[in-house]
Nucleic acid binder design. Structure first.
Lengths: 299, 299
DNA sequence: TGTCATCTGTTCCCAAAACTATCAAATGTT
DNA sequence: AACATTTGATAGTTTTGGGAACAGATGACA
């Protein structure tokens, strides 16, 4: 700020007792100082200082103005400094990873909003379904769904990760609606990676427990399963965050909901390395995610 | 004022939702508004607004800044307006009269100080020992000493007006120190106008009451009597405000103090016409005089 | 769904205004 | 009487504001 405010100049004059002294301190010439004070007086239409060449007295108005305005100015500059410092301490990059589907649907939107609110922080987001080593690869945060992960990470639960068995209406019309979990052994089942047994799908009341799911598409990508399921290729056990909209629109229909454990899917968590120092920007993003991760079911 | 202006512009932008809208309201062009906001952001080194061409969002920092600074700015402008209004309502001339000696010694100094403190008021001071008609001649105030004056005026007592009989050491050495009031009949007495009897000088224990003072100089001017007394021409009954310094320095010596009524001199009053409206400036001067009229005895 | 029109913010350059410095003069103080 | 300080006028420089061209986003309309 090359240009000091009228108020700052006035205060300097009052504090140092003369125009010249204030000018020396502020790095101006005396005449410049005098002019600025004169400007202020003209703006307020009130003389603030009675000047003789040797002495300088505040008028009643000047005294009041100085007393009260000094406080206000101090508060304003304090506020500005505080905000600047705040931003400075937030500045930096956050390296963040998330699984593909979850990230695309529910991490990217709040992260974008966060970036608008905090333009000084930069975000480096990696969407992958592979489990990355946070510490080893230098990530600050990860957003993951599932059961609670290993304990070298600090976890914060954003919400529970309900998963529901479901299928497209076309498929169910053709192949019938299963009434018991065991019936799935004869259905086309779309399963994720190693989830091949009824038990893996979190059914509460299946007797055998180890009964294999019916054969069908198997893939490590949730989004691929999702697409296949919508296309009528079978029944899949999909997380609610992925299909809420489809269920609402009727593009997918839940199946065997009385037999499914709603908590079997675990939760959605933010994770961070345990040992490392937590920068303010990371804490801010964690809090922001926690605040904005509530309304998945309602959309 | 840079700080203030930037803030005002920022607030206008926030309130009206766009640079253009704010510019229309403020009478600037959009480019000027944008520039000032940019300046502010650069000064704080924090982005305050995230702009797209259609939408405009406050940053976290911006939100905080706006919230808190708005209040400070409002207070500052309110203060400035208040001070300006205050001065405006004080502006004007005060017509003031006082008796010569009292005025010169004890009215002029505080009035000058008052003028320095309130440069917007002008003062028209008439020093005269004649009693002027406040209402008829358009005076706002009078400062007078003596007994309480007529009741068409509102009076405020500034202090009591002690008067003491006294003489110069040279005179008293030569003519002796009187022990009883009656002895004054044989002294050279300097009296003011019609004060020719012992009673007029406020003695508490003189028996006759109507005993005439000794012959001597008589004059309607207190200052002339004062000068004559100091020059050793006799004994005079002079107000303390006039001779405090002389008593202190020993140039005058009190006489018959045990017989003198300290309250006989009445008081020193500020008077103003009863009926007229009391402008703020007049009230301010009255208060100021009351506050600064206390230390006559101590100088 | 795609294209277009319109509104808005940004940037550059130039003119204008404001600010500051220099110097001389007036003034009050020691 | 001498010194320090404020004040005033003038000139030079920085800052600021305006206009036009450009880019981006929204909403209408087909």
């Amino acid at each position: 700020m090359t240009q000091k405010t009228e108020l700052e100049i006035l205060l300097a004059v009052v504090d140092h007792g003369s125009f010249s002294a204030a000018a020396r301190v502020l790095g101006y010439t005396p005449s410049a100082v005098g002019k600025r004070v004169h400007q202020l007086e003209q703006r307020l239409r009130v003389p603030l200082l009675v000047r003789t060449t040797r002495r300088m007295t505040l008028t009643e108005a000047g005294q009041r103005y100085v007393e009260e305005a000094r406080d206000l100015l101090a508060r304003l500059t304090a506020l500005e400094e505080d905000i600047a410092d705040d931003a400075a301490s937030l500045r930096g990059t956050i390296r963040l990873t998330s699984s593909a589907a979850l990230g695309r649907l529910h991490v990217v939107p709040p992260v974008i909003e966060f970036m608008e609110r905090h333009p000084v922080v930069e975000i480096d987001l990696l969407l992958t379904d592979k489990i990355v080593d946070l510490v080893g690869e230098g990530f600050d945060l990860a957003v993951r769904s599932g059961t609670l992960p290993d304990s070298s990470l600090v976890s914060r639960k954003l919400m529970s990760n309900r998963r529901v068995p479901c299928g497209a209406p076309a498929y169910l019309d053709q192949h019938g609606l299963p009434q018991q979990p065991e019936e799935l052994t004869t259905h086309s089942c779309l399963h994720l990676g190693q989830e091949k047994r009824l038990l893996d799908w979190g059914f509460t009341r299946n007797q055998g427990g180890i009964t294999r799911l019916g054969s069908g598409f198997s893939c490590n990508s949730l989004e691929a399963l999702h697409a296949a399921c919508c296309a009528g290729h079978g029944i899949a056990w999909l997380p609610e965050f992925l299909i809420a909209h489809d269920l609402h629109k009727g593009r997918l229909v839940p199946v065997l909901i009385d037999h499914a454990d709603p908590n079997a899917g675990g939760g959605i968590f933010v994770l961070r390395p345990k040992a490392t120092f937590l920068p303010r920007r990371v804490r801010a993003l964690t809090d922001f995610l926690a605040d904005h991760f509530t309304d998945i079911r309602t959309d």
